[in-house]
Structures are given as C-alpha cells and as structure tokens.
Design a binder for these strands. Structure first.
Lengths: 164, 164
DNA sequence: CGGGAATAGTTGACGGCTCAATCATAGTTC
DNA sequence: GAACTATGATTGAGCCGTCAACTATTCCCG
C-alpha cells in the first residue's frame, strides 16, 4: 500500500536536525552498549531489566509490567529473562494468586552485577549525554521527547492514522 | 572489568529526561520501522540505504562511503545490500579504477520503491517528530545532538576513555 | 621488483529480535 | 458449569546485526 498524496517534505533545517538526531542516537547507543558488553557482559536490554527490577519492591516484578518498564515487547522480555536466568542474575517464580503470571526476581548475583555495571553505565550517560549538552538545551530536549511521547499516545487514540 | 570509583549519579531531573529520551526513541523507532515494513516491505536500514543512494550522483556510491552515510557497519551494509539486490532494488558493479571496490547502484525499481516509501516515511517523521515539538525546542534538540556528536568524536581522540 | 602493511568488501557462525502460534489460566455469560 | 473470550507468558522459525576471519587488491618502501 502506498501513500496517496505528496507529504510536506522536510526543509533543509528540519532535515539536518532530524539526521543529527538519527546519527547521534546511533553512535551513542553503540557506545553505551559496547561499554556494557565489554566490561560487564550485559546488553543494554539486559541492563535495563536489572535496573527496573532493582527499583521495584522486593526486587521483583510481574513479567508484563517489567516488559513495559524496560521498553521491550513481552516476547522479547521472555528471551531476555531467559538469558539473565541462565546466568543466574534473575530467577522466575510463578505467581500464587494468578497462576498464569510469573514474577521475575533479581538475585543477589544479579544485584552485584548491576551495581558494577551501573557505575560504568552512568559514567557513560553523563559523559556522552547529560554533561555534553548545555543545561538549557538539555531541558528543552526533555520537553521535546515528552511532546513526542504525548503526541504518539494521542495519535494512537485517534481513528485514522498517518500512514495509509 | 569494573568501575573503580563511584560516579556522580544522575539527579532526579537528569534521570527523568534521560528516560524520556530512551522511551521516546524506542517508541518512535518502532512506529517508523513498522510503517515502512507494513506498507513498503522495507526496514529502516534498507530505507536509509536507498535514500543515500538516491542523493548521490549517478544514484551510486562506493560501499564504504555508503556505509558511513547510512550509519551502518561495512559488514552490516553488505548484508543489507544483499537483501536489496535480491529484491532488485540495488545493483552491484565492481569498480574499474580500484578493483577491490564495489559500486552500489540504485535501480529504477529501487527508485520507484523509495519514492513510494518516502511519502509514508516523511509523513511519519513530520507527524511524530518534527511537528510534535515546538520550533524553539526543536532547534535546541538539534544543538543538543550536535553537541553529543561533537563530544563523542572528541572523546575518541583522547587517550583514556570514560570506562575502565 | 618483492614483501609486508593497509584497504575494500564479503562471508558465516552466532546471538538477539519479531511475529505468529501456542499453552495455560482466569473471567464472563447464559 | 460449559463454552467463549480475554489475559499472561512462552516458544520456535526466520530475519537481522555483530564479530572475527577471510579474499583480493593496492600502497609503500627498501
């Protein structure tokens, strides 16, 4: 299926900024992922899961909730937790009150690994992201992504989407 | 290998914005990728390659250069071009003056497919990114990612990196 | 010229992600 | 309570990306 009418194309500035964002994100992600893999044998996705578990009460969370918080599909989370469980960093426990459900639990080994990795990771996030941007622009960046998120959420509500 | 000394942790605002960015990017990317795949059977990576080729003189580019411009490793580009060539959207031509080299060439079918896809894609980039952000914040976002890119490039020059 | 280093690109194995199908359990309706 | 539907999570196939090894060509330097 293709698009029925010409869109408003991006002007030069709009395009330049869009591409800075694309390139910047790609490079940053690559760097942070590599740091975690090299030094701590964790992918960004795995790290994210450990972080969210560590912040939860009892260091545990239901799979569906964990999927949301760690920005992964349920299926992807299943696989990620498989790997983390294989390495002993997370354990699974079936849920008593809803026996379809499963709790993912951060083990002590998982907590220790996270503590080490967080140190490296935060250092990177600071050096390459937070501290690289002027404070005023940093706040603007926050507003920008909040707007993007809000707008996407609103678009999902609306009946006819952008693409045809 | 782990990190030797405590980093300066992110304060609440820094962290909130960092996470907005992570989530916003994840959702946006998902959406744009899905639009391209559903309507035009192209991944974002494939789309990017077609775009860069279409902008080059003669609709063709050396593989190494194309890899840079489309933000992919050379190896990844090889695979991506494999797929595009299999679908007849790109052709390969060995280079006359440097016989190690290969030209990737956008075919007519590739150009047509790109024209269709661009329409959908630009519409999405506009709706979900460019037009979702206030003009002032949009420019700030550009400055932010330019700073991030500049800073990473500078860091690569320096001897000792952030991670240990 | 000859040999070693550098460069262009490809390949294949492996791991991660997506998608659709599946299983098990829970809720709902008559 | 039987049948349907909805929900929570997993599975496996297939595609994509990464990494290290490889081939082929060119460059450099004595």
């Amino acid at each position: 299926m293709s698009c029925v009418e010409e869109p408003r194309w991006l002007d030069e500035d709009e395009q330049r900024i869009w591409r800075s964002y694309l390139l910047g994100h790609a490079r940053l992600n690559e760097l942070l992922d590599r740091d975690l893999r090299e030094h701590h044998d964790l992918s960004l996705a795995e790290y994210e899961v450990l972080v969210r578990l560590s912040e939860a009460g009892d260091r545990s969370m239901r799979m569906a909730e964990l999927a949301e918080f760690s920005n992964q599909s349920r299926s992807r989370l299943s696989h990620t937790v498989d790997r983390l469980a294989r390495d002993g960093l997370v354990a699974r426990n079936t849920c008593d009150d809803d026996r379809r459900g499963v709790w993912a639990i951060l083990t002590d080994a998982g907590f220790r690994r996270l503590a080490e990795a967080a140190c490296t990771h935060v250092r990177g996030v600071r050096a390459y992201f937070v501290d690289a941007v002027r404070g005023e622009d940093y706040r603007a960046l926050g507003r920008a992504f909040d707007a993007i998120l809000g707008n996407m959420a609103a678009a999902e509500e609306r009946p006819e989407s952008v693409s045809r």
